[in-house]
Every structure is written in C-alpha cells, then in structure tokens.
Nucleic acid binder design. Structure first.
Lengths: 139, 139
DNA sequence: CTATGTGCAAAGGGTTTGCAGGGGA
DNA sequence: TCCCCTGCAAACCCTTTGCACATAG
C-alpha cells in the first residue's frame, strides 16, 4: 500500500477506485503534469472518471500534503508528488518549456535565515528560476 | 513627465487620458493592488474607464517592463511598479495577508550562481516566502 | 484624417459546485 | 445500510476579445 492509500485510511477517507487510479497516475509521473494531462492519463485506466473528480481529488491530496501544486508561469496548475526527503526547486527553460529540478541546501538555509531575520517563521515558499541555455561555444 | 509617459512616447504609443490615469494610480500605490483594486482607484479619477482598458493597459505596461506582475498565492494577478534600482522579494504573512518586502544581495547572487551551474542564463525568477510572525516572548 | 485605443458585452479557459445516483466500509 | 463520493452540467471567476465608436498625433 502506497503513501496515498495509507493517508486515506488514516483520515478515514474512502479508498475509491478513482482515488487509487489518480494516486497511481501521480506516482508514475516523473514530469509535472497539469490537470488535463492527469485527467487523460487517468482516463486511459478508467474512461469513466470525470474531470471534476480529478480536481476534487487533487485538492484533497494537496490538503493532505501528499502532492504539491506548482504554478509555473501559465494559468494552469501543475502537480508533483510530495517527497519530504527530496525537497527541490524548479528551473524553467523559457525557450523549450523544459523543467529542470535542482536541490540547494544553501538556498534552503538562506530562505529560513531571511524569514527569521524579518521576524517570521517560514512555513512555505515558492521559487522558480526562468532562464535560457548558455551557449558554451560563445566563449 | 514620468517613466511611463516617456516609454509611451518612445514606443510611439498614444498617451491617452486612460493610460495617464492608470500610470498615476500605479505610481501612487505603495501596496500590491490587484486589477479590481486598480480599476476602482482609476474610476475615482475617471468613472468612465472600463475594466477591459485596465487589463489591456496593465498588459501593455508589463510588456514594456514598466510594471511587474506578481502571482501571490491567489488566482488574481497583483501589480507593482518596476524599479530597477529597488529589486526586492516578498514575504507574505499567511495569517494577516500582509506583504513584507525585502532585499537580499545574497539571494540575488545565489539565484544567478545556481542557474549558471545548471548551464543556464537566468532571465527572471519568482520567489515568495510564506510565514507566520515569530512570537518572541516564547523564549 | 487615420490608425490606434476605448467601452461594452459576450466569449474563453481553468476550476468549483449542486444535485441525484452510486458504491466503499 | 449509510453516508461519502462521483459524474454531469451549469455556475464561477478572472481575463481576453470583437465590434463600433472615439480620439491622439
């Protein structure tokens, strides 16, 4: 049983076939799918799942802290599974739309330090970098 | 003549009364108003300005690099005048909704350093911290 | 005078919700 | 069985757009 199924059981939420499917789709996604994409992937497994259920389930999972909603530029939300052990940030290639994940202890520490200096306890944050590929041969 | 009026002249854009009013409202705003708020403030000066004009003008000013669109949590865009000399970040108090601005050369440098290490030239970035006030008397 | 800009209302796109029926526990 | 959950379609909210009129240059 995976994390998401465990969490449903703990919170006494019903483990419906839709929730299992959406959980599975999220686990199998290594990219950062938006709702439409998640809906399409879920529908490959069960074509009767409605998009309203996808939205409701994503909101539920997000509130349970199981997934993370990204707001990368566009108006549409994107999602990724939340892994406490794998805190990372995103860099978006503005030419190709590719998303590069990276980790940085230095950045993590600095965020907390700054919040503390301002008299706050850091609860969450949002950081994305947008850039273009360096043309190395220009040197 | 302010920055915005100068920019319109340079780009051969018409300096309509609506654009002047919206430019003035932006200059006079020290908070981070959303479109609805900007629309209300502009309407106090000229009640005939339509919200479509506000949207179109904000998009125009943003493209000219005169203002900056913030996407702080909510679905609605917020705006602030862009001042190259005053690059700053935002920390949102999640209990009150207050926004604290701060500067950090360290953070600025780190963003560029990370992008460069990943093989990218940093073009822009989005960073917000969300936190709660530290209760100092707890110590 | 003419092309650009405006106001209005309708359309768009993503997300949420009311309701009646369905299915886990 | 009982209540939570789902599917559908309509509603919502923010933003954009088509069109006819207005106006800056």
């Amino acid at each position: 049983m995976n994390n998401i199924e465990k969490a449903c059981k703990e919170k006494k939420l019903k483990l419906t076939s839709q929730r299992k499917i959406i959980a599975k789709v999220l686990s199998n996604s290594n990219d950062h799918p938006n709702v439409e994409e998640l809906y399409a992937r879920a529908n490959k497994i069960d074509s009767k799942i409605g998009i309203a259920t996808v939205y409701r389930t994503l909101n539920l999972f997000e509130q349970l802290g199981l997934i993370k909603r990204l707001e990368i530029g566009e108006r549409k939300a994107r999602y990724e599974e939340f892994q406490r052990s794998n805190e990372h940030f995103h860099l978006v290639d503005i030419e190709s739309g590719n998303i590069v994940e990276f980790q940085s202890r230095e950045l993590e520490d600095l965020k907390h330090k700054i919040a503390h200096q301002l008299g706050f306890k850091l609860v969450s944050s949002r950081l994305e970098l947008y850039g273009t590929l360096l043309k190395k041969n220009k040197y």
